[in-house]
Design a binder for these strands. Structure first.
Length: 223
DNA sequence: CACCAGGCAAGTA
DNA sequence: TACTTGCATGGT
């Protein structure tokens, strides 16, 4: 059985990213760095209450004031700087037009995002997949934990080892990457916290013996 | 009380 | 290059 189908049939479609606009995706991507999503929701709720989910409003807001608003997300001082860095980048390079940034060719988009202090591989790829809707697989700690526990990669596998593994064996399909990553995060939240295999985990029967020789992670009908 | 959460950059050697 | 550390709230 293939990993994606195991997770999809167990959890059902997740319809990520949990945000209403592209800007909200970007803000969430920064705020959720090493942070529980429920805390991020509180911070985004604060931003919405002050009508700050807006590039024009954010660019004229001080870092100190922004930090106060996003406080529940944790690391609020550094995240306020990181958000401002990203907003400033959009104004400096794209005249404050988010669409212009997101329409950039994928490689240039990624290079640009990574040039912003505070935007690393996962944050950049989350924005590219969930805001720009390009087929780039997003890797996170859950991805690493689950695949290493199931002996699909070594413990020392890098971000790009994992991203390459998925992208080498999946069709370039943004909706598939979208759903797959969301399902992996959900699996990581609910299972696989401590033990390699947990009771009732949908991946209990999934492992290298099924996948090392046959790397189809989705049903052929999808590809 | 301890531990963890949808990372990243900066410092050290 | 290869480690290590700081950043911080809120839930379990």
């Amino acid at each position: 059985m293939e990993m994606f189908d195991l997770l999809l049939s167990h959890f059902g479609p997740q319809n990520w990213w949990p945000a209403r606009t592209e800007l909200e995706v970007m803000i969430g991507a920064i705020l959720t760095q090493n942070t529980n999503w429920t805390n991020v929701e509180k911070a985004i709720s604060n931003l919405k209450n002050k009508d700050l989910v807006s590039l024009d409003r954010l660019v004229s807001l001080s870092i100190g004031d922004l930090a106060k608003v996003i406080r529940p997300a944790g690391y609020y001082n550094i995240k306020a700087k990181r958000l401002k860095n990203l907003v400033d980048f959009i104004f400096d390079r794209y005249d404050g037009n988010l669409e212009s940034l997101l329409q950039e060719e994928t490689d240039l988009l990624r290079k640009g995002l990574l040039s912003v202090k505070g935007v690393g591989p996962e944050t950049a790829d989350s924005i590219i997949l969930y805001a720009a809707k390009r087929p780039l697989f997003v890797v996170d700690t859950y991805t690493h934990r689950i695949l290493s526990r199931h002996a699909m990669v070594g413990e020392d596998a890098t971000y790009y080892d994992l991203q390459g593994l998925f992208m080498d064996h999946l069709p370039e399909d943004a909706p598939l990457f979208n759903e797959f990553h969301a399902l992996i995060v959900l699996t990581g939240k609910n299972f696989c916290r401590k033990k390699p295999l947990c009771e009732d985990c949908p991946l209990n029967q999934w492992g290298p013996q099924d996948n090392m020789n046959d790397m189809r992670w989705v049903k052929e009908s999808r590809s």
